[in-house]
Design a protein around this nucleic acid. Structure first.
Ligand SMILES: [Mn+2]
Ligand SMILES: [Mn+2]
Ligand SMILES: [Mn+2]
Ligand SMILES: [Mn+2]
Lengths: 232, 232
DNA sequence: ACATATTTTTAGACAAGTCTAAAAATATGT
DNA sequence: ACATATTTTTAGACTTGTCTAAAAATATGT
């Protein structure tokens, strides 16, 4: 009658599985629709056939919902794991930048490895050591230990009108070249931005940086910069 | 005639291979003789057959010298990799203790994972961030970035005579139980030790800790504590 | 020196994660 | 509606790292 264990069989999740979950999580941010095999294979840089294999494994472990030929969605369990991975990734990025003097274009690759270290004590101590940062070096929000992600109200520069202004709070693209180019333009997180002119011909935008420097940024750049508008 | 590239084919070494090299390195500290398969299988907690497989791979990569049935020795290349791994392990242990508030019995397991993160910039920045520590939380020396290991002059308590004294600078065993027991006895690194009495019957030792507290430690404990003797 | 015990290697199998090539299902355009 | 293009899955193979059971080599004791 007794001996009624509630077997909390803590399933093991490999580093590779974690990475797939994170990829699906990322792709899910842009849409509500199921994520298809090809999109994952592009994101993960693997053959579509490998993705199908992995999808089956993740589905067996109930980390995703999967119907043949219909794509996948994260289950609640999968979402939790992915969010936790994102938390770890972003906390390590803050550590590398703040404590070890890395530049914002150098943190991602190392965090990609550090994020897989499994220790709750480690990550919670790190969080506290860093003084509970809310955003990572690219302006992305850091989920708290319960998985809550602060939602940001922000706009792409490309969507602003002339004379609107605000603070640069994030970047959409994370590539090294892009981040280094922003450094060259003096576009670090926190600078003040005012839209001076929107060029009809090629959708480039002339902006005023920190009330002092004028720069023309291409359409492409303007679509990758998040601004928190200030109603001044 | 030209086109004489010195192909520095940076061979990839997996986490598992690194762990085997470290195990062989550790076993080599106690002896000059070749390390045999069985010893490695015990250290790595794997079947002897698995060790033989891995030995072949490491030998193919010229990380060890291997003769069938004769055991293995690290090559220069292997020694360099193992030393670097030990450096990373011990630096991470210092980080966990000093910066994240881990206890000395908690650092090892996490460092076991962190040591495999591959980034020279990471580990050198960490070294600098920690102010170039020379010893880890267990008193083990930290190799510098060129692989030089500071040799310690130290003695096991079991080898001291009555009235000799010194400072506790290291532990031989690293297990959680042992370290926690030392905490209970107040035997942290840095305390002053004086040998008050050596009991013939069971080789236990009565010591004076920091000129104030007397404790009797068993033979086994006394064989696991390194003292740097002070000629007072 | 030789029988016995121990250690090491081989043989064969398995799981995870990857690939390419081919087949099957779905989507698209006229 | 149907031919064509695209996407997804299957089939079969490979690598790394592991295992057990059995065979081969080495070590040991009298
Ligand atoms: Mn990143
Ligand atoms: Mn980031
Ligand atoms: Mn350790
Ligand atoms: Mn240590």
């Amino acid at each position: 009658m007794c001996n009624n264990f509630s077997k909390t069989v803590k399933i093991m999740i490999s580093q590779t599985e974690e990475n797939y979950l994170k990829a699906i999580f990322k792709l899910s941010e842009a849409t509500q629709k199921p994520i298809n095999t090809n999109a994952i294979s592009v994101e993960m840089n693997t053959a579509a056939a490998s993705v199908t294999d992995m999808i089956k494994r993740l589905s067996d472990k109930e980390l995703i919902h999967y119907e043949k030929y219909k794509g996948v969605k994260l289950s609640q369990k999968g979402k939790t794991i992915a969010t936790d991975l994102v938390r770890r990734h972003r906390l390590w990025e803050v550590f590398l930048l703040e404590k070890l003097g890395f530049a914002w274009d150098e943190v991602h690759d190392v965090a990609e490895e550090l994020e897989h270290i499994k220790s709750d004590k480690l990550i919670d101590s790190l969080d506290s050591f860093l003084d509970f940062p809310k955003f990572d070096p690219h302006g992305d929000p850091i989920p708290d230990s319960d998985g809550n992600i602060q939602s940001r109200q922000q706009t792409l520069i490309s969507k602003l009108e002339v004379d609107e202004c605000g603070v640069l709070v994030g970047v959409y693209e994370h590539s090294k070249v892009f981040l280094q180019y922003l450094d060259k333009l003096g576009l670090n997180l926190g600078v003040n931005i005012k839209v001076l002119e929107k060029v009809d011909y090629d959708q480039s935008v002339k902006v005023l940086i920190n009330e002092t420097k004028e720069e023309i940024i291409s359409k492409k750049v303007s679509q990758n910069l998040f601004i928190k508008t200030t109603t001044s």
